[in-house]
Structures are given as structure tokens and as C-alpha cells.
């Protein structure tokens, strides 16, 4: 069952404060979080979070297409590396 709209999206409150502080500093930093359940909000766009997957903190560079998803969706707990073949990585 979907979450009621009147509640608004769930996000751990301390993330909001830290995101604001990080944005104001403008430094190259990764915000390490354990809160995989928090929803990505528009004011997180442009920041980089390290989301814990039970083993390590995987970098999540938030862009506007990710708003509304949960942090945990971008930090899988089971890893399949696959084959590199002709796959490419783009430097952000």
C-alpha cells in the first residue's frame, strides 16, 4: 500500500540539516549516511552521499531524476560486477 500523500515523503530529519550545511560549505565532500530509507528530496540535488550497504559506503551523486526515490535504491547490498567488455564510465 502506498504511503498517504498528506504525510509527505519520509526523510530522516538530521539529513536535512546536514545537507543544508554541506551545500553552504561548497566543498568537495561526501556525506556518509546509514539512512537508506530516506526519500531523496529536491534540496539534495547536486550533493554526493555515501550510502551504506552493510559493507561500505557507495557514492551516490544525486541528480534531479532521482528525486522521489530512496537512497537505498542506489546502493545495492548484493553486488554483481559483470564483465567490463565495451562498457564505458563517464566522469561527472
Amino acid at each position: 500500500m502506498a504511503r498517504s500523500v498528506w504525510k509527505g515523503p519520509f526523510v530522516d530529519g538530521y539529513l536535512l540539516n546536514k545537507a543544508e550545511t554541506s551545500r553552504a560549505s561548497g566543498r568537495n565532500e561526501v556525506i556518509k549516511i546509514w539512512s537508506r530509507r530516506s526519500t531523496i528530496l529536491p534540496n539534495f540535488v547536486g550533493l554526493t552521499f555515501g550510502v551504506y550497504n552493510g559493507h561500505k559506503f557507495l557514492p551516490v551523486q544525486v541528480n534531479e531524476n532521482m528525486v522521489g526515490h530512496k537512497f537505498g535504491e542506489f546502493s545495492p547490498t548484493r553486488t554483481f560486477t559483470g564483465h567490463s567488455s565495451d562498457k564505458k564510465a563517464k566522469r561527472g
Binding site: G8, F10, V11, G13, K32
Partner: peptide, 14 residues
């Protein structure tokens, strides 16, 4: 920067 949850801050709706 590590962001650990406070014990009295269990979550809120934005």
C-alpha cells in the same frame, strides 16, 4: 562527513 542518527530524532515528514 558522518551523519549518525540522533536517538530522539527518528524521522520526520518533509
Amino acid at each position: 562527513i558522518e551523519v549518525r542518527p540522533d536517538e530522539d530524532d527518528v524521522g520526520e515528514a518533509a
